[in-house]
Amino acid sequence: MTQTINEVAIVTRQLSRSFSIRQKSEGLAASLRNFFSPVYKTVNAVCDLEMSIGRGEIIGFLGPNGAGKTTTLKMLSGLLVPSGGSIEVLGFTPFNRDHDFLKSISLVMGQKQNLWWDLPPVETFEIHRRIYGLSDEQYRTRIDELVEMLEISDCLETQTRKLSLGQRMRCELAVSLLHQPSILFLDEPTIGLDILMQKKIRSFLLDYHRRFKPTILLTSHYMDDVAALAQRVIVINYGRKIFDGRLRDLTDRMRPEKIMTVIINNGEFPCQLRDGCRLIHQEGQLYRFLVRREVVGELAACLYNTGQIADLTIEDAPLEEIIGQLFTDNGAAAASAPAKTP
């Protein structure tokens, strides 16, 4: 099937979801009062969310805990009915749970499992094969590919409950991808995994996307996941969208400076600092500056020309820091503001 990025896979218009949550104060008297006269509070988990995602895109869906990410994923996958607005996923209204729609999506939640706990993964694969109506050939080809890509040949016949978290997560991915979904919702797929396993999962997802081009909507608190996978990020907070664009644009907007760390051989700092360079740390011969992007090249060239550099690194502020800043009120305003031209 030929897919182009111009085709729209997911569209939401003024999507909203609120929950009515029963409130209860502490103590027996409060419990008694609440029994006769319950008090409910309406929580707006998602408010007027507008987004459009093209086929084959990988979107990083970011936000702090309680921002509405998982609620949105649940609405997009048809688990929750929106309180307002509309959703179209591959032309379907998710909540109608059309058979063809369900065959086209997959939701992987890092904290939830699709594998049958008491059976080995290979048994779950077999059940999925029947549920999704895969032919013998399709099943064999896909399972061989996934087993190879995810390196799970040694754990296919071990009872799921006896697998390590990393093995289980890779088998979860395999079973979720067995029917080759056009849309893949990934909710914290690397949560709880060690660095090595996180890298493996990321590398697998990139490879899988390169081969099969599914649309991927990814939520993760690990910014390395987002940086490695997402071509575009949508950031929400308090259920509202506060940024939608390339990760690069977000970092440029939130942190227009780069961090330049220089170690010089000896003596005074050899270059004249101009506007846009600010010294933030010095320790012996080590200098650390915040340098506006447009003057980074000029300062680096000057330093090289002096021939006194022992070491020079130029990097962005850590993504976690940028995203953390975004979730403050000022940060959200900065992200929503029109981009400045250099």
């Binding site: 049958w116 008491d118 077999e126 029947r130 549920i131």
Partner: peptide
């Protein structure tokens, strides 16, 4: 087939 596979899986469990 899907129902049969699910029933079989429950037997195994």
């Amino acid at each position: 087939n899907a129902h049969l596979a699910t029933l079989r899986a429950h037997f195994k469990i």
